[in-house]
Amino acid sequence: MNGKDLQAPAFPDGRLERDQPKWRRDFPIDVEADEYGARRDFTKFLVLTSLAFACGQIWIVFLSLFRGRQPAEQRIAAITDLEIGEAVSFHYPTDRDPCLLIRQSDDVFLAYSSQCTHLMCPVRPDLAHNRLHCPCHEGYFDATTGQPTAGPPRRPLPRIHLRIDRGIVYATDVEERAS
């Protein structure tokens, strides 16, 4: 502590202690010292926040290492299991990733992740209007492209690549798409 710190506390109005009101003389808070401590502590807190953000970035790097792998092919359903205009749910690539398989016509099959890109609520098929509906916040996606058409979602639904072999529909890959 240097000589300046030992001086009488600085008052907010800059006047001497004897000119201060009684309540302030009874509780002579050194405003400058208080300000210094508060700013120093706030800076320390911000550096801690900076550490948290850096940890978040590293966490994303780890996630990308695991997501980069090509998922294994998986049987979904037989063609005969779905009528035209029907949808069936399945899980791909893991049991925690719900998806929807949609049959649009005789030979057009489409599949999307059924987790809304807004807040991960499950989307429901509304194929009479050629759309997928998220009931949580009234989000809508085009059933043909998976693009958002209304509501809060901004990114399209991840598309599941399909392969049809001898009347069986297989999921082969997941395509995540940006807005």
Binding site: S50, L51, F53, A54, G56, Q57, I58, I60, V61, L63, S64, R67, G68, T117, R155, P158, E175, E176, R177, A178, S179
Partner: peptide, 20 residues
Amino acid sequence: FLGGNHTVVVPAALASIACL
């Protein structure tokens, strides 16, 4: 990352660590 673009992940992490 959620849009499937993984190329920016590592440079962004390095930039964030530099800021830290």
